[in-house]
Amino acid sequence: MTSKTLFEPYALGDLTLANRIVMAPLTRNRAGAGLVPNELTATYYAQRAAAGLIITEATQISAQAQGYQDTPGLYTAEQIEGWRKVTEAVHAQGGRIFVQLWHVGRVSHVDLQPGGAAPVAPSAVRAQTKTFVNNGFVDVSEPRALDLSELPGIVNDFRQAAANAVLAGFDGVEIHGANGYLLDQFIKDSANQRTDAYGGTVENRARLLIEVVTAVADEIGAGRTGVRVSPVSPANDVASSDPQAQYDYIADQLSALGIAYLHVVEGATGGPRDIAPFDYASLRRRFKQTYLANNGYDLEFASATLNEAKADLFAFGRPFISNPDLVERLKTGAPLAPLNPATLYGGGAQGYTDYPTFAG
């Protein structure tokens, strides 16, 4: 096997991907009025349609689920129609696209919440992190603990958003269970101090994630459903006292549901891979479907990992921002264009749709 194997088709559920290179979800804070994706969004994703699979920026399942300024939703008719323009543009270029669905939980601010309410969380524990609101980074607000009676509604919001995704033309959805957002807050015991059926044991802390995934898979099909997890990432101030046992259990449960893929952030999100000891090979063994590896991969590392059969697909994040033709650049050995960090969050076309393709 050679690095060219990365550029060969791959069967993901009922889909055939053009290659094994995945565009990772990347928050860009450019949704329009009503948190609706616009024509610029469609252009941005269509430019990157050569990826084997695009996973969109994280997208709210409800108004309560929002944690950052100008991030898109998928719970109104206008949002569905906006996303339909995106999926049509990507499909016209031969691409495949999943939407990442999230609820941010406690990583939010009262200025973003309906009626100025407190953000919700498994427990009333404030995260030591910031969010982007009112065109700046500020401390997140104090959350309130979700009542047991509210959890079925959140499960249903994920289910309905998945149904909306199909209406919008997406090929599938990725459930965001990583990086310290709501589902991850339930999983990690630094944020989850509950004493009911959703707290305490490994099984209880995974319960909400499994209920959400089950509901989504029942709604749109397991073959259209993926899940992202981050076993040891400290993103947004979460930590687990027993990550190996916790995620071995989650991998077993998700494998039994037959979902399309498990997307694993290996190490700290966007940071060191060796931040904490963890046996990712155990997840690979336990999860019988597609393993999507994320964090710190380049062509050489991804090719070596594929040769060793340690993963099936490989997520590339920020390189896709400044290199809309990343797949071709990797395939031909062309140099990668640098990223302009000043244009990552918010704004318009600059640093979004104006990165050039390689001229050769």
Score class of each variant (00 low, 15 high):
V110A: 14
A245Y: 10
Y44D: 04
Q47G: 01
T357W: 09
N340K: 12
D111R: 13
Y75M: 04
S123V: 12
L15F: 05
A222L: 11
H263K: 03
A342V: 09
R224A: 10
V229L: 12
D298P: 12
D157S: 15
Y247T: 00
G333N: 02
A121G: 09
L209N: 12
E300L: 09
F287D: 05
A118K: 15
I250R: 02
V173T: 07
R286W: 03
F132E: 00
R20A: 00
P324W: 03
V104F: 11
N19Q: 03
G200H: 02
Q289Y: 11
P143E: 13
L299F: 02
L313Q: 00
P243E: 08
D279F: 00
E78L: 07
V107R: 09
L292C: 08
T131M: 07
V227D: 12
P25Q: 03
N204F: 05
H263F: 05
R284A: 10
A256V: 12
E211D: 12
T43A: 13
Y45D: 04
I21A: 06
A293F: 12
D157P: 11
Y352P: 01
D111E: 15
A165H: 05
A11Y: 07
A349F: 03
T2K: 06
D14V: 00
A161C: 11
Q350A: 15
A251Y: 00
Q93E: 15
F278N: 08
S303V: 01
R106T: 06
N164A: 08
G351Y: 09
T5E: 15
I55C: 07
L306G: 02
